[in-house]
């Protein structure tokens, strides 16, 4: 099914916000795909890094629901090779930040089985809490 992307005040504000948070100017992206070709995590991603840049430019907030922004390992391969000198990993980080600042709790400690909790290493819990709670 083809999705409709609306261009309106909200979409423009979203793009501006990502630009501000990341310090990048996504409109400079040439859409050449060098970032995608360089990305070691690409096989795990649902959209390509260049597609992420595109969606930010269009102001489509659904980009925050993609796996890609969480899979990005911030290895900066894309940054090192971008012919426009852009930093896609910073844009991914900005998107993660926006998502985290929405402060939505996806997991609750009290719902979890205390026995099960004991099985997880502490680092896993810290990471999960960072990602899944506000």
């Amino acid at each position: 099914m083809i999705k409709k992307i609306l261009i309106n005040d909200a979409s423009e504000a979203f793009c501006k916000k990502v630009n501000e948070l990341s310090g990048e100017t996504v409109s400079r992206c040439d859409q050449c795909g060098t970032c995608t070709g360089s990305c070691p995590m690409i096989i795990e991603m649902d959209i390509t890094p260049s597609q992420m840049m595109r969606l930010v430019l269009l102001g489509d907030e659904s980009v925050m629901e993609t796996k890609t922004i969480w899979i990005c390992a911030s290895c900066y391969s894309c940054t090192a090779r971008c012919p426009r000198g852009l930093d896609a990993s910073k844009v991914a980080e900005a998107l993660r930040q926006i998502k985290l600042r929405q402060a939505i709790d996806y997991m609750h400690m009290e719902d979890m089985d205390p026995e099960e909790l004991k099985k997880f290493p502490q680092m896993v819990l810290v990471a999960a809490y960072r990602k899944l709670t506000g």
């Binding site: 795909g33 970032c35 995608t36 690409i42 096989i43 959209i47 390509t48 260049s50």
Partner: peptide, 11 residues
């Protein structure tokens, strides 16, 4: 060669 086809968004 590793390259993205930016039109179909596939690797």
């Amino acid at each position: 060669m590793r390259v993205e086809d930016t039109l179909s968004r596939q690797m």
